[in-house]
């Protein structure tokens, strides 16, 4: 979910813009050598993920995959997600330049939860591992939904209802993303363990 231009208030745009700039600059410090290819690849997967529609009842949602990006890249998830969001602004006009900071913070900051829970998962086996992998995919989505609601709520009392509605809309995505990431992490551990190990 991208926040459109013109919706957020000036203080929120300023604070989120500064926070995103700091995060992205910090993340780019680690984008060198092998991490360059990996960051660019995960950035494009985050971009392509928005075309993968998964059914939920009569409707469908697209994958967000910020937990996966965070699990693989750690802090390099900040520049990866920023670059993907920037390309979405340019190619599809989703979001915008002034809200790019807010959208980056909303999507990229919770990605670190994916990194933490994935690391917890690989140290465990069986059901605890599956639970950690589920959380590595699901919690970043929940974190993003919460940040989205906070950013909107701070932009004016009038946006409080929109914030609540958007948060509730993300709850089914929380479960879908958790299940998809659980299977994805187990698949990657079997098929290409090195890919996630070097994160």
């Amino acid at each position: 979910m991208h926040i459109s231009e013109g919706v957020l208030s000036a203080p929120v745009l300023g604070v989120t813009g500064a926070a995103a700039a700091a995060m992205v600059v910090y993340g780019f410090r680690y984008v060198k050598g092998d991490m360059l290819a990996k960051t660019a690849l995960m950035s494009s997967l985050f971009f392509v993920g928005s075309f993968i529609h998964v059914p939920i009842g009569p409707s469908s949602v697209h994958l967000i995959l910020n937990g996966l990006v965070g699990a693989v890249l750690g802090v390099c998830a900040f520049p990866a997600i920023f670059t993907a969001l920037l390309m979405q602004v340019l190619l599809f006009q989703f979001g915008g330049f002034t809200t790019l900071g807010a959208n980056t913070v909303v999507m990229a900051l919770p990605a670190l939860l994916g990194y933490y829970f994935y690391r917890q998962g690989i140290r465990r086996h069986g059901i605890p591992q599956s639970l950690m992998f589920f959380l590595a995919g699901a919690l970043p989505v929940l974190g993003s939904a919460m940040l989205l609601a906070v950013v909107l709520a701070f932009s004016g009392e009038g946006l409080f209802s929109a914030a609540k509605a958007l948060f509730l809309m993300h709850i089914p995505i929380f479960f879908v993303e958790g299940i998809v990431c659980l299977f994805l992490f187990r698949f990657m551990l079997k098929v290409y363990p090195d890919f996630l190990e070097r994160g």
Binding site: V48, V180, F183, L184, M188
Partner: peptide, 10 residues
């Protein structure tokens, strides 16, 4: 879908 995304990555 999880395997599809995984194979895309591999």
């Amino acid at each position: 879908y999880a395997y599809l995304a995984g194979m895309l990555l591999v």
